[in-house]
Structure formats: C-alpha cells, structure tokens
Amino acid sequence: MKLYIVLVLFALWVPMAFCSNEPVAARVNGEEISQLRLERYFAEYLEDQGRAVASIRSPSAYKKLRTAALDALIDKELLWQEALKRGVVISDATVHNQVEQTRQAMGGAQVFARRLEDAGFDEAAYIEYTRRDLAAQQVFAQLNKEQISKAGEPDEQQVRAFFEEHRAEMSRPEEIQASHILIKVPQGADASTVASARLRLEAIRKKIGQGADFQSVARTDSEDASSSQGGDLGYFPRGRMMPEFEAAAFALAPGAISEPVRTAVGWHLIYLQNRMEASDVSEEQGLDMVRAYLARQKQVQARLQVLAQLRSSNRIERIDDD
C-alpha cells in the first residue's frame, strides 16, 4: 500500500462514533458506511489511479468510478464482518509490529504522530484500523483458499487444448534492441534538402566514431521522439518498423552502427544494442506455462467469486446509488 494513502484508508474503518451524524452512503447488515468515509476513500481511490476528481468531465465516468469506490468499501466491511463471524483474532504483537513498521516507514514516531493528528485521529484508532485490516486480509485469504480448493487443479485435457491453440503465440520470434538518431526530411523535399540532411547525419556519425556516446548524441541531435530516451527503441521483431529501417537494423551485428539509412521520414543512424534469437517453446515447457497461467486464472476467479458470494449472502443497502 502506498504510504501517502495509509492515513486516509484507516479512516475507512474507524469506530462509527466518529461518523454518527454523517449522511449514509450504504449499510452492510445494518452497519453504516458514511458519506464522509466514501468521500475520503473516493479521493484516494482516484489518486491511487493517477487521477483527480477535477479531471473527470463525464458524469457517467464519475458515477462509475464512485460506484467502484463504494463497492470496495462494502467489500471491506463484508470481510471485516466475516472475520468477526469466524472468530479471527489478530494478536496484539502482530498488530503492534505492523503499526511499528508503518511508523518507521513514515519517518519515525514524530512524523507518524503528526500525520495522525493532522488527519484528526489518534494512535488507538489507527491500531484498531490495523487490527481490522489484518483480520479482513486473513479471512479473505482463507476464503480464497477454500474457493480454490473447491475448483481443483486445472484439468489436463484443458491444459493440452489451450497449449495446442496458443502454441505459436508462446514461441518467441527473433528480436533486436536498437537505438537511432533521426534527421527529418520533409515530404517532397528537393534534392539539396535531402543531401543537406544526409551531410548532417554523416557529421554526427563521424563525431560518434571519434568517441562521442551514441545515446548522449541522440539526446541532443536526434529529431525523433525517442531522443529523450537516448534514441532507444527497445526490442522489436521483424514487421514492426519501416522496411528500409528494418532491413538495415537486422543486418547489423551487436555494437555496430549503420551507414545513413533513408526512410520516408528522413535519414537515420542505427545502433544495434542486442539481438535475441528466435526460440520455440518445448511441449514440456509450454504445458508447464499453461498450467501456471490457468492456475493464476483460477485464483483470480476465486477472488471474484468470494466477494460475489459475500455480497449475495449479506444484506447490503446502497443509498448513494439512489
């Protein structure tokens, strides 16, 4: 969990006395989730996604995100209530160890205390939040384990069928990692403009040949968007780049720099950093990969089913949606 949202998140489960006069967003088996808790969580929910309320211009998008935030709060309350039903107990030592880890991660006791005070809470409330959070996590893990156990291991017939269907996708084509420097040439440029651009690139190539670093030169001289990354284009297979560029790049040995290469956008110098040869996945490797993939899918489905079953078997009243 990101440290900057810890204090707001613990406000989600503080005792209801803090929020008793607040309008209600939802009730879970009679336990209220206040509008204040929802508003606090919604802001952090968006921030965790790199968004802000002011940036959401579509009313339907705003409502969808707010609904998702309320869903998360309801799920947290359901898990806490399930932990109570199951008698899940988190020891004081475990709770205090977790609190201490958070205190140190925030910068020590003084910073931690100031953050609590600024948020309007005390350490006792935070300890209670931590206990509930750990209990909810534990019961969620138990429910997932039970659900996965019911689902069983991936069926071998299903594993083989999936492997045969996707075997070609599991093989890796030949790929190269390359950087380039581009001097642009406008469409329809006359011969002198084309020649001038090539001369500029040849001068750059000479500078690199005399010891200048390719990536540093790319940052200052390249006219491509990749200049900020030192001209790095990452790994790519055949068929991804322009034909002239691709032919020259794949013909290079690692560490080599091409002669000037002309494409529709201008002149390029290409530096080949690395080459990864094509490889086929063996049947044994492929089947193992499919088993692991399908097992992960079952885990994802188990988590979704656990929450869906909790929602369907408990009394939930959503007032914020009305």
Rank of each mutant, 00 (worst) to 15 (best):
F214Y: 03
I270Q: 05
A278Y: 01
A141M: 11
R262P: 12
K64T: 10
R167P: 02
N21C: 12
M170H: 04
S149K: 15
A178W: 00
A141D: 06
V300T: 15
E277S: 11
I204D: 00
E165G: 03
V265I: 15
R66P: 00
W267Y: 07
Y4N: 12
L7G: 07
N29L: 13
H166S: 08
V28D: 08
A189M: 03
R131T: 12
F236V: 02
L294A: 04
T94N: 10
S196P: 09
G30Y: 03
N314H: 14
H180N: 07
G50S: 03
A72K: 03
M170R: 04
A54W: 06
R86T: 13
D224I: 08
D320V: 00
A113Y: 01
M16E: 15
H180E: 09
P15K: 09
A197F: 04
R103F: 01
M276I: 14
V53E: 14
P237I: 01
A253Q: 15
Y235K: 07
V28E: 06
R37V: 07
S192E: 13
S227Q: 14
R219Q: 12
P173S: 06
G230W: 04
M276F: 13
Q177D: 04
R205N: 04
E100C: 03
V8K: 10
F121E: 04
A135I: 12
Q98F: 10
E123L: 05
F18E: 15
L252W: 02
Q158F: 14
K63C: 09
K150F: 09
D224H: 15
K298C: 07
Q49M: 05
K2G: 01
A109D: 04
Q147C: 08
G108T: 03
V306P: 01
S227W: 05
R132H: 15
S60H: 09
S226L: 11
S313W: 05
L70Q: 02
Q215L: 08
R318T: 09
E174D: 08
A11N: 14
E169M: 13
K76E: 15
I183S: 09
D48E: 14
A124P: 00
Q147H: 08
A17T: 14
I5D: 05
I74F: 03
E100Y: 05
G30R: 05
N144H: 14
